[in-house]
């Protein structure tokens, strides 16, 4: 099956946040108790009960005031740090459409995916199990659009064949973000402004430690996880990101 993806056209977003609520409604996620901290942006971060959210960014671009809205979520990376680092087979998995789902029963609560993610997406629930946007894999598997996409009134969120979305996006005259990075993001942006205006990394990458994990530690087998190797790996988590080289990117998805 051809890879599917989200395309997020920020120029169309009015920050109505139907995406936030439609997700909670479909996935039956509870509300978080919040306070106003001087912003409309609530909750301020993704939470175990909030799989996608709108960031409200007040900025100036070329001297002109802008209020930018960005849908923040799991970007379902082609080269996914979370998948690479996950020591429990099947806790995170890639669907036929290319989305990254999770199985809480298999999640062992190690939190490594948190460190493996370049976009600060995975969250852990009260039972210490992974949660994040799974692309409404139940809906998608049944031929429906993800709940957020279905609800989006302005066409900001689209979901479909990744290559078609890219082709369409390229005709928009806007900056396409995520076509190639991390072997191609499964949720891409069409930006009116520069990535940094949206607080997006120019070239997102997986933390260095992840390569260590995948290429050195993981082959030793899951048994080793519980031993000192895991501890050693943790040491590297803090090393920080390493830029993907072209060669890595060219290898394609996992």
């Amino acid at each position: 099956m051809a890879r599917k993806a989200f395309m997020i056209d920020t120029s169309r977003c009015t920050a109505c946040r139907s995406c936030q609520v439609a997700c909670k409604q479909w996935n039956k996620l509870p509300a978080d108790s919040e306070i106003n901290r001087g912003s409309y942006e609530n909750p301020p971060q993704l939470t175990p009960h909030l799989y996608n959210k709108i960031e409200f960014i007040e900025t100036e671009v070329n001297g002109e005031f802008k209020w930018l809205f960005l849908n923040k979520r799991c970007l379902h990376c082609g080269e996914a740090g979370c998948l690479k680092v996950c020591p429990s087979t099947g806790a995170l998995f890639r669907t036929e459409e290319g989305l990254i789902g999770f199985d809480k029963d298999k999640c062992i609560g190690c939190n490594y995916c948190v460190n493996g993610c370049p976009f600060d997406v995975p969250r852990y629930d009260a039972d210490n199990k992974i949660t994040k946007c799974h692309g409404c894999l139940d809906r998608v598997g049944n031929g429906l659009q993800p709940a957020c996409v279905k609800a989006c009134p302005t066409g900001t969120l689209q979901f479909g064949a990744r290559d078609k979305l890219i082709a369409q996006g390229k005709t928009s005259g806007r900056k396409l973000y995520g076509e190639k990075a991390l072997s191609g993001l499964g949720a891409m942006y069409l930006l009116d402004n520069q990535p940094q205006d949206y607080k997006l990394a120019d070239n997102p990458s997986i933390p260095t430690s992840i390569f260590l994990w995948k290429d050195v530690i993981k082959p030793l087998g899951i048994l080793g996880f519980w031993g000192s190797v895991g501890v050693a790996m943790l040491h590297y988590v803090t090393v920080g990101p390493k830029q993907l080289d072209d060669d890595t990117e060219a290898k394609g998805g996992e």
Binding site: T89, F93, R94, G101, K104, K106, D138
Partner: peptide
Amino acid sequence: MELSRRGFLKLSGGAVGASIVGVGLKPA
């Protein structure tokens, strides 16, 4: 990861709990 979503399910033999979010169904 070389496994497709379906491949993953075959390998795992469907032996997963009802913990996939959404509708409380097994991944399969």
